[in-house]
Design a protein around this nucleic acid. Structure first.
Lengths: 161, 161
DNA sequence: GTTCTGACTATCGAATCGTGAAGTTAGGAG
DNA sequence: CTCCTAACTTCACGATTCGATAGTCAGAAC
């Protein structure tokens, strides 16, 4: 019914979780507005007013969130200039930001399946070119798909394989 | 630099996102406490006080969150009885709850890489038995790993492949 | 019947999140 | 020099989140 613990973690009653990465991540990006802004960034949006219009968040929230996400290092703020226009800033995803693709689209995948009607929501994620459906989930580095029961947690440096 | 839109979505300026699954998901489970409780559930926790102790959330929050998540259908509340003890309730993950495995562990994966020190945090996700490292990310149903640039969005019923 | 314990509920306060509306600022267009 | 616009900032407000602390309640143990 759940995953297993290996090595020193095997007895769940003997340890508690400090420095949990899930909790830390949620403190950093655990708001609806952050996720919507990231969604737009993955969709190619780079400019302030496009973020605001497309997410339907208010200016104030978008400004606060972009500043926050930039400070954290998910975006870089870079000046740009269209010909005959004044210079502006655009917000470009860093690698740290792009590494959130699995997290954000996993939420989309779950929402499509469980929060939308029978049609599964308005949008589908597919492979570019082939149109083959895309799924997000755990797998080994050698490519095998895994279920919850196939997973195990090990402590750093504690290899029980 | 980002994913592409196919079919009727190709011109990003002509449409806006209604009923976004990401937004809906975040409204339902977008709190730190929800994620921590789900983490514990994936780790095998089923009882109220274990949730409270292991997540270090207060009783009040855990009670509120468990009720919420049960109402939504991520948990079922089932009576159980240990021999010589009074009957209690336990909280068991439904399929809807287990389908959040990619979302929750994607956050863990990201936090391990970007929010922890050089050691990458205390815990690692591996395959049970083999100990092979596990990664969470997008791939085609035929098993190819994908980058952000390999992804495309299509409207439901609009197959442009 | 008293005690103990697991599973909650109640109240308070601080911080954060979000909306709406209005104001500011820099710089090219005319 | 004035207008316009993108990119913000500020303010007022309500809702939600979470921690801390304390209290309740049911039922087996004794």
């Amino acid at each position: 019914m759940s995953l297993t613990f290996e090595g020193v973690l095997a007895d769940r009653s003997t340890w508690r979780l400090e420095n949990c990465s899930i909790g830390k991540s949620m403190e950093v990006i655990g708001t609806r507005s952050s996720m919507l802004i990231l969604r737009e960034a993955f969709y190619g949006t780079t400019r302030f007013d496009d973020f605001a219009r497309r997410t339907k968040l208010t200016d104030a929230i978008v400004a606060a969130r972009l500043k926050e996400l930039t400070d954290i290092g998910l975006f870089v703020r870079r000046p740009y200039q269209e010909p005959g226009r004044r210079s502006r800033y655009e917000y470009l995803l860093t690698e740290k930001g792009r590494d959130l693709v699995p997290a954000v689209f996993a939420l989309m995948q779950w929402g499509n399946k469980h929060l939308q009607g029978d049609d599964g929501g308005p949008l589908r994620l597919v492979e570019r070119g082939t149109g083959e459906p895309v799924v997000i989930g755990p797998r080994t580095v050698s490519g095998r798909d895994l279920e919850l029961e196939d997973l195990a947690i090990v402590a750093h440096g504690d290899w029980a394989g």
